[in-house]
Simulated assay, not measured.
Amino acid sequence: MQDKVVLVTGAASGIGEAAARLFIREGAKVVLADINEVAGAALARELGMHFIATDVTFEEQVERAVAYTVERHGRIDCMINNAGVIGAVGSIMETTAQAWRATQAILLESVFFGIKHAARAMREQRSGVILSLSSIAGVMGGLGPHAYTAAKHGVVGLTRSAASELSGYGIRVNAVAPGTTVTPMIDQVRGSREAAMTGAAEVSPLGTALLPEEIAAGLLFLASDAAAHITAHTLVVDSGVTAGGFASGASKLRDRPVTFIGPSGQH
């Protein structure tokens, strides 16, 4: 990844932060984008990289982030559509349309924006890699809340569809589908980091918690020349959960009071 230019959304924490750190260690120039201006700017200062405040639910802000990246570095080699929330949690019979739409806007519509505008820039270069975060909830049913599951299935479908068009421009489009990964949002669901680590280990056939750095490693592989002939693919990183049909905590979320887990004001 030496001197490759990478834009990461949702880069202020969790998988986005882990990806930014790893790609920088591998020689990339990373632009961090996040709705959390304080945390995002602080991380960018620490890493010596650029930051742009971005609410991915607004197309013009995603377009601006891509343009900013190209302006600063002259190109964009990799777009990582990572920004996300858990979103609407609870019974489908009680989920509001507003919470449903807010979840889709963050998890699926933002990926459409990212693919669209990154592809426009990469088309001129005749090269590039676009990576989006799906989930094991995007490859099986019952492993996540309903709105989340629908959105993550959408990411897988959009990845395949976009790849079929963009391959003619030398652009590869792939997704990564993590299992339950210990991030700040999972800490919030479980109540603490300790509980999140324990819960993630309990649902893992390997018996260990899945960490953001391990998802970042999958992203790095797909972004690299080692994956030069991989496109339209969803890489599942889940310790074997989907192969064994193990539950990943969705049953615990199902019976919770209906709520929205994510930035305030989104529901």
Rank of each mutant, 00 (worst) to 15 (best):
S161L: 04
I130E: 13
I52P: 02
A151Y: 07
M185W: 11
G90T: 15
K152Q: 03
R172A: 13
D225E: 15
I115G: 04
S134K: 01
T9S: 15
R254P: 00
L219W: 00
T181Q: 01
G10E: 11
S264A: 13
T159W: 05
A162I: 05
A232M: 08
A28P: 12
T96Y: 14
A18C: 12
V129E: 13
V241Q: 12
S134M: 01
I76G: 13
A223T: 01
M93A: 15
Y68F: 14
P145S: 12
A151N: 06
P205D: 06
G168T: 07
L143V: 01
R126N: 10
G191P: 00
L211H: 05
G128V: 12
S135P: 00
M140C: 06
E26V: 06
L166E: 11
V236N: 03
E165D: 13
A121Q: 10
G199Q: 11
T181P: 05
L158M: 07
A232E: 06
S91V: 02
A28N: 11
G27C: 08
T95D: 08
A163E: 11
H267L: 06
S127A: 15
V56S: 06
A232Y: 09
I230Q: 12
A105C: 00
T54S: 04
G14C: 08
G168D: 09
A19D: 08
E37S: 13
I136W: 06
F112P: 05
F246A: 12
G40N: 01
E17H: 01
E26C: 09
N81D: 09
G40Q: 00
P178K: 03
C78G: 09
E46L: 06
L131N: 07
I15H: 09
G170Y: 12
D34L: 10
V173M: 14
A195I: 01
Q188E: 14
I80F: 04
L222F: 05
R72A: 14
T95S: 12
T103W: 14
T103D: 10
P257T: 13
H50K: 15
H50A: 15
M122E: 12
G84D: 05
K116S: 06
E194Y: 03
S167C: 09
E60H: 14
N36R: 09
S248R: 00
V30R: 07
T198E: 15
P178A: 03
Y68G: 02
G170W: 14
T208C: 02
A99N: 12
S192D: 00
G249K: 01
F221E: 08
A44E: 12
G245W: 07
M93H: 15
A250W: 03
T57V: 15
G218Q: 00
A250G: 02
A18D: 13
G170H: 13
F23T: 10
N174L: 05
L219F: 02
C78H: 09
R72M: 06
R21W: 09
D34G: 08
V66W: 11
A53H: 15
A243P: 00
I15G: 11
V5A: 13
V31F: 04
G27L: 10
G14K: 04
I76K: 08
W100V: 09
R21A: 13
G245P: 02
Y169V: 10
L22K: 14
L7E: 13
V8W: 15
K116V: 12
S134G: 02
I136K: 05
A118N: 04
H73P: 00
V203D: 07
T183H: 05
L166G: 10
A12S: 15
